[in-house]
Amino acid sequence: MAEAKIQAESRTEFGKGAARRIRRDNKVPAVLYGHGSDPVHITLPGHDTMLALKTANALLMIEVEGGESHLALPKQVQRDPLKGFIEHVDLVIVRRGEKVQVDIAVHLEGEAVSDTLVVLEHPTILVEAEATHIPDGVTVSVEGLEVGAQIHASDIQLPSGTTLAIEPETLIVNVTAQQTAEQLEADLSEAEAEAGIEKDETQEAPAEEPVPAAAE
């Protein structure tokens, strides 16, 4: 995994007001911590940070003004719920060769047999890998799978050097029968009945338009 270098500034102002001023300057307040060191409060450039964090588990080389550098992974990224811009980033310091636990994406490929529904029970799985060799994700084939087929965590082929950090029997993919329109309607009616929703079956017939009298 390539490292994304980001130039950071030391941060001495804290609180909501200071954070708003930082964001107005198109920058992101952040904190670095880990390996027993005191938290380091920094400010990151907004555009560079946004680009770097488009990649899951992005490995960052944070170069703080004054010559101090830290290799880090994003631990928590807070975004504005409406506009989506980054509000704050928690970064955990890592070392080369160190094993870390991260969630990686599960990608499905292929098609199951007709009239089936492929359910991805876990879109990510927790794995352990070297901080500098975190896989982007894993690909799972569902080609030709029939109703009742299941794929568990232990069935997934992981990249070399990566191991599972969840229970091997964790269900990842489940193949079920695709519901018919009648089954969907029955499920909807049952859900409405449980919720106490009464369906009005009676509908007034549209009024008949008067027939014009025949000309004499």
Score class of each variant (00 low, 15 high):
2 A>S: 14
5 K>E: 13
6 I>N: 02
14 F>D: 05
15 G>C: 00
17 G>C: 04
19 A>W: 07
24 R>Y: 07
27 K>W: 10
30 A>C: 02
36 G>W: 14
41 H>I: 07
43 T>A: 11
47 H>P: 11
49 T>F: 05
51 L>C: 05
58 A>R: 10
59 L>Y: 07
59 L>S: 14
62 I>T: 13
63 E>M: 08
64 V>E: 14
67 G>M: 04
76 Q>C: 05
77 V>D: 12
80 D>I: 00
90 D>V: 01
90 D>R: 00
91 L>Q: 04
92 V>G: 02
93 I>R: 14
95 R>P: 08
96 R>V: 13
100 V>D: 09
102 V>N: 05
102 V>H: 05
103 D>I: 02
103 D>M: 06
105 A>L: 14
114 S>W: 01
114 S>I: 03
116 T>K: 00
118 V>R: 01
118 V>W: 02
122 H>W: 00
125 I>E: 00
128 E>M: 11
129 A>G: 09
130 E>I: 09
142 V>S: 05
147 V>W: 04
149 A>K: 07
159 P>G: 08
159 P>M: 08
161 G>V: 07
165 A>R: 03
166 I>N: 10
170 T>G: 06
171 L>Y: 06
173 V>A: 08
175 V>A: 00
181 A>C: 12
186 A>W: 01
187 D>I: 05
187 D>Y: 04
195 A>G: 13
196 G>C: 11
197 I>F: 04
197 I>Y: 08
200 D>I: 15
203 Q>S: 13
207 A>C: 02
208 E>G: 08
209 E>K: 13
211 V>L: 07
212 P>L: 12
214 A>K: 15
216 E>W: 02
216 E>V: 11
